[in-house]
Write a protein that binds this DNA or RNA. Sequence first.
DNA 1: GCGATTGTTCGTACATCGTACGAATGGGTT
DNA 2: AACCCATTCGTACGATGTACGAACAATCGC
Lengths: 226, 226
Amino acid sequence: MSREKVQLGREAIGAAALAIADAEGFEAVSMRRVAQELNAGTMSLYYYVRTKDDLVAVMDDALISEALLPAVPRNWKRAITEIATRTHSIFLRHPWALISMQSAPPGLNAMRHMEQCLEALAETSMTAKQKLTLLAIVDDFVFGHALREAASERVVDMEFAAAQIAQGNFPRIAEIFSGGRIEIGKSRFREGLCLLLEEYGPRRPRASSKPRRTPHGTTRSAHKSP
Amino acid sequence: MSREKVQLGREAIGAAALAIADAEGFEAVSMRRVAQELNAGTMSLYYYVRTKDDLVAVMDDALISEALLPAVPRNWKRAITEIATRTHSIFLRHPWALISMQSAPPGLNAMRHMEQCLEALAETSMTAKQKLTLLAIVDDFVFGHALREAASERVVDMEFAAAQIAQGNFPRIAEIFSGGRIEIGKSRFREGLCLLLEEYGPRRPRASSKPRRTPHGTTRSAHKSP
DNA sequence: GCGATTGTTCGTACATCGTACGAATGGGTT
DNA sequence: AACCCATTCGTACGATGTACGAACAATCGC
C-alpha cells in the first residue's frame, strides 16, 4: 500500500485486487481491503464497479490477456497446444479464476482469446460445429486438470485415509502406493492434450449430433467508465 | 422442516444440508439454516462437526457414494466409462461439489471409489504409474467438463459481447455464430472420453480379461459419534 | 441417597463481509 | 450567485462462521 492515491478506475481497482489475490490469496480480496490498498474509501469503489462480482470479472479479464498469443502458429495443433498451455499456466497460478470465470460475463480479452482460437482452426477443414466441439473438449481438459492440480498442491488431512489403508480395508489402494508416492506431475497435462488432439485431427470426426436447447438471453449495460 | 427433531449426528446433519443445497442452492446452506431444518440450536451442530468445511466434507462423501458401481464390468474401458459417467452426472446436479471436493480430505466413499477405479484396471497390464495417470486424466476431463457445462447453464450477461460482435471487432466469432447458436450438447462428454480411452488403451497395455468381483469394507470414524 | 463426572445442547457475542443510502465535496456553466 | 453533475465516502444493516461458556441430563462411585 503506497501512500499516494492512484487515479481510481476499473483497471486500477482490478489491478489492486489482483495484487492482493497474488500476495495474500483470493479470500483476502475484500472491498475494504482493496480500497485500503488504493487509499480510497470503501464505497468509492462502487462508483466504478457495480458489485464485487463485477470486480472479479475485471480481474478475470485481466488474467485472460495473458493467454493471448502475439502470433498464431500456422500448424493448428501447435497453435491450440500453445494457447491451452498458456491458459493452463494462468489457472495454476490463479486457481480462484477457475471458479469465478464460470459465472463472469465475457470481457474484451475473453473475446480476443476466442477469436484467436478460431483463427488457429481457420485453415482446417472442420465444420463450425467440429471446431467448437474441439475447443470445448480441450478447454474442458485444461480447466479440469488445472482445477485438480491446484487442489493437489493444497495440504489436506490424510490421517483418516492413512488409517483406513493401514487397516487393510483398501488393498488395491494400499498396493499401488506400496512403492512410495508416485509422481504423475505436469506430464499428464501434455499427455492428455496430445491424446485429444492427435485423435481428433487425422481421423474423420464423427458426426454425432444430439441437439439440445438452451434458452439464453439477457441484457444489461456496461457500468460507468469515466 | 418437520416439527419433530431427528436424532442429531454426522449423517443426519449432512443429509439435511444436502436437502437444502438441492432445494435452495448451495449458497443457502448456512449453519443456522441447517440447524433450523433439524429443529436444533445452531451451535449444536458443532458437537458433531468441527467446522463448516467439515460439514461440506460430509456432504461431499455422501455424494460420492452415488458414483459407486454395484459391480465392476470386466471390460476396463466400459468400467471406467461407467464410473466416469456416474461421477459426471453427480457433478452436473451438484456443481458446488466440484469446488468443495478439491479441498476436502478423502472420506470413506471417496476411498471406495478409488478402490473401485483400481479394480477396474486390475487385469490390465498397465504399470502403477500408467494406471494412476489414466485415472487422473479421465478425472481431469470429467471435472472439467462438468465445471464448464454447469456454468454454461447459468445465465450470463451477453450484451457486451453482442455489441462487440455487432461492431465487427471479432469477425471469426461473428462468422461461426452467423448460422444461429450451435449446440454442442452432452455429446462432447462421451466424445472426449472416447478419445482419451481409445487412444490410451491399445497402444500401451495389452488388455487381458478375467472376471473379478467387488469387495467392500466398512468402517467408521471421524469426529464424535454419539 | 448424593456429589462428581461426563456427554450433549445452545444462547450470546464478536469480527468480517457485501452493499444500500444519502450526505459531503468540488469544478464548470450559466 | 445559483445551479448542475461527477465523484467520494461515512454510517448502518443484515448475514455469516464460530469462540466461549452456561445449562441440562444421564451415569457412576461411594
